[in-house]
Design a protein around this nucleic acid. Structure first.
Lengths: 207, 207
DNA sequence: ATTATAGGGAACGAAGTCTTCCGTTCTGCA
DNA sequence: TGCAGAACGGAAGACTTCGTTCCCTATAAT
């Protein structure tokens, strides 16, 4: 398979990736920014999605499915309960679905399927949290919602490029896990620390 | 002093409070939203500030000055180094200057004075951080910029009303301080935990 | 050669925003 | 009591931005 069909298939993926990147950085971004980032025209978008809202729903749905997948994988883990939970947290941070899903909440009408997936995601999160607390390796004075909010905090970090963002998020996730784990333990933090330059650079070009 | 002059003076404060509340919740909010929240007309705003940008600069400047004030107060503390640092962190969270200052960065031209204040704020933050590390009560593998980013994460929490937001922020700040402090210690978390309802409610009305 | 399909991007209409402007109210003072 | 002008409310103007449509071209399949 090659030629026109191949380019169309490639564009399918290109557009989705671009949309995810653009809307993650700025949930209110115009649709033209997605087209530009993907290197295609606007009609390439409208050929695939009838409206902006449809594209956002697709993106949000994909994010939820990824979240569910990561959580199910962690639940299937048989070994050390803490390691399973830690892997879950790292997986969510890597998947980076919080940035999109949360920021877009309320900007469009949630579909039927989206609601169902959200429900399932919530159930899974509750399950892995319960299991980890019962194993006695996680601070019991935190709810599932607390954990979710902590993950959102980490997702709010946006400094430098994609790679640096991930690095810093894992750094602070490790720090946070030190506060979560039972019995108390303290590990070395991954990645180079943040610098003053990284902070102040945001004052010159738009966020 | 009363009558028209009094109302004008009252409006001065009313407008600033409204602007802080509105732009904290949504940095891109229209100026009309500020007027409505303050219960005044648009001309009341333009009588005081020549443009939207001027208002934002004023807001940002006030935030920086408050930040500086809080930090200087913590530096003047004579007692336990950890308590001084903890008080500093709590003060910054209460002042809630990060939400505004950071989100607005890059949306307007920083003035001369603003740059100077930002410089001074940075120096003070470095100083209290250095002092606390040297006292041996703060994890040494974190930079001043790391601490700043951690505070930004906490400022990103926005769930429910003003009161609840503050409560949750202090809850997670306490958790975070458990991970920061030397020697390792663990305290009870303040405030009621987050609930699933608080999270899911964001799906129905705008963020 | 012809038709069908994908795509590029200008054009359009609607919505939103900052700013200005004008008429009105009310105070302080002569 | 009368008046100058500060303070104000809010509609109108001028402009920008954004989602969507439309028209045309390029290419692949027949």
């Amino acid at each position: 398979m090659s030629g026109r069909k191949a380019q169309a298939a490639r564009n399918d993926e290109l557009i989705l990736q671009a949309a995810r990147a653009v809307f993650t950085a700025d949930p209110g971004a115009p649709i033209a920014a997605v087209a530009e980032k993907a290197g295609v025209g606007i009609s390439a978008l409208y050929r695939r999605y009838p409206s902006k809202e449809a594209l956002l729903q697709k993106l949000c749905g994909d994010g939820l499915k990824l979240y569910i997948e990561v959580t199910e994988r962690a639940l299937a883990e048989e070994g050390d309960p803490w390691e399973a939970f830690a892997g879950y947290l790292r997986g969510i941070v890597d998947a980076d679905t919080n940035s999109l899903t949360i920021k877009l909440a309320g900007t469009f009408q949630p579909t039927e399927e989206l609601g169902r997936d959200a429900m399932r995601a919530g159930a899974l999160a509750t399950e892995i949290h319960r299991r980890t607390v019962e194993a006695g390796v996680l601070r019991p004075d935190l709810t599932t919602a607390d954990i979710a909010l902590l993950l959102e905090q980490i997702a709010s970090i946006r400094v430098g490029d994609e790679r640096r963002i991930s690095e810093l998020r894992h750094r602070y996730l490790t720090l946070m896990m030190d506060a979560l784990r039972l019995p108390p333990a303290r590990r070395e933090l991954p990645g180079p620390a943040a610098t003053d330059e990284e902070l102040s650079s945001r004052w010159w070009t738009g966020s």
